[in-house]
Computed example of a mutant assay.
Amino acid sequence: MVIADHNAPVRRFNISRSLIWQVSSGALLLAGVALGASLHYFQVARDAAENRILREENLTLRTQLKSVRERIEHIGSTLDRVERFDQKLRAITLLSDPQRNLAMGPVEREPGVGAPVAETQFTELTSLESPKSLPGKLDRLSAEATRQEQSLQELQAYFQDQKSLLASTPSVWPTRGWVTSDFGQRLDPYTAERVGHAGMDIAAPHGKPVDAPSDGTVVFAGLEGGYGNVIVIDHGYGIKTRFGHLSKILVKAGDRVKRGMQIANVGNTGRSTGPHLHYEVRVNGIPQNPRKFILED
């Protein structure tokens, strides 16, 4: 029933209950759909935000993982260099005291720990390596570092009592150039026959300085057959060095020399095919590979 005003006639409208129910149901249905859509929208928005956060965290973790790999590789490379240096130092200790437990090369590895230097196992990391393998790699690095620390501590204790030996042991290049003939078997440049070579030949410009590789006393300075002008230095402890084909000799027998002191100049005297230095190291009269007595790169 609708009454417009007090003068207007009364109008009546009849609405069935079924229509009211249908309208009410439709309104509730629309409200439910709207509510469901709203909930779905907020869920999708929340998932998108979480996915964005996860992507950012994943990118951060990848960056950190790459940094960890690079640091492990750097540490491994450093340990490889330390081990090579350790081997050279132990080569020196072998000369004076072969009865000590300081033989050539590093201390003995424990089973399953480390690998030979040639394999450079610590420098073989790749971007495809599983992150799960990193803890094991770090454990091996830690074990290797501990082993190297122990080895270097032994060497330090030994060297503290061997200052005189160190000063007398050849350890530097006598001259800089390029090695044209190494220690061992080689083809004779004159006869083309395979013969033993008791030292190494270092090619260098004529007149380039030749320095004493360690402290010692000059025991010979003069001509010696095919070696031309020769200097022989006695370093004590059974160690002697020989320098051949010199153009000029700056010391005489009986002179004391120090490591790094100039003793001669590179030349081409004697049986020689060009300017170079013939360099020998002998221990108790037995020729040794001079490379064992060069700690410089």
Rank of each mutant, 00 (worst) to 15 (best):
L223K: 15
I286Y: 07
D211H: 15
L39E: 00
V172K: 08
R46P: 00
D5H: 13
E110D: 12
T269R: 01
R176S: 11
A143H: 13
L54M: 13
G244V: 13
M1C: 12
K88I: 12
Q185L: 12
Y237H: 15
H40L: 12
D80I: 06
S181L: 09
H278I: 01
S67I: 06
K88V: 02
E70S: 12
K258V: 08
P131Y: 09
L29D: 08
K258P: 03
Q87N: 06
S67E: 12
N284L: 08
H235R: 10
S38F: 00
L187P: 01
T120L: 08
E193S: 15
E280W: 00
R109E: 14
L30W: 14
I75D: 02
T217Q: 14
V195Y: 02
P111A: 03
R242F: 14
G136P: 00
G76L: 10
F293A: 00
R81C: 04
P205W: 06
L134A: 02
G254V: 02
A31S: 15
L165P: 00
G225D: 14
V251L: 10
Q64D: 13
N101M: 05
L155D: 13
F85K: 09
M104L: 03
R69N: 10
T217K: 06
L277N: 01
K292Y: 08
P135A: 14
L166N: 05
R282H: 09
F42R: 00
A253M: 05
Y190I: 10
E129F: 03
Y41W: 04
A192M: 09
P290Q: 04
R100N: 11
T180F: 04
I92N: 02
A31E: 05
T269K: 01
F293S: 00
E57C: 09
T146S: 10
G136A: 15
N289F: 09
E296C: 06
F13W: 06
P213V: 00
G238Q: 12
A34M: 10
N265W: 01
P287I: 11
E70F: 06
Q148A: 07
A192H: 14
L277K: 01
G136C: 02
N265D: 07
A45E: 00
N229E: 01
V266F: 11
R12K: 07
R84H: 08
A31V: 11
K132F: 07
A143C: 07
Q121V: 11
I286P: 04
A4P: 05
S151K: 03
A91V: 03
G196M: 09
S67V: 08
P135C: 09
P189V: 05
S133D: 13
L39Y: 01
G32P: 04
V281G: 00
A212N: 10
I294D: 02
T63I: 14
A143I: 07
L223V: 10
L155V: 11
L59E: 13
P111N: 07
Q288P: 07
G184A: 14
A212Q: 03
A192I: 08
L166T: 10
E110I: 04
G36S: 13
